[in-house]
Amino acid sequence: MTGIIALYIFMLAAFTGYEVISRVPVILHTPLMSCSNFVHGIVLVGAMVALGNAHTPLEKTIGFIGVLLAAGNVVGGYVSTERMLEMFKSSQDKKKGPQT
């Protein structure tokens, strides 16, 4: 990837993030933060590539730590976001019963 293309991606992604988030209501700030926490877990694929190309024991150790941490980020981020979102219900949902 050339530098200038990457620069365009940086800029557009930053504006996208800003626009998408600026509409999130205050009551969803925690799930939002937790969800974005999950999204940066994409670092997992980078860590996998790094470990996948490691040769010396030192490289393998660092790569292993990277994948371990990234997997924790992904799974932890998903589980905690899911648990929080499960709890948000409006008055109407309550009347329909606990199944909803």
Partner: peptide, 18 residues
């Protein structure tokens, strides 16, 4: 890795706003 750039940058902007 474009996926990492996009996802990371979106989170970076969102987190900064928050």
């Amino acid at each position: 890795n474009a996926a990492m750039i996009i996802a990371g940058m979106v989170v970076g902007a969102a987190g900064t706003l928050l």
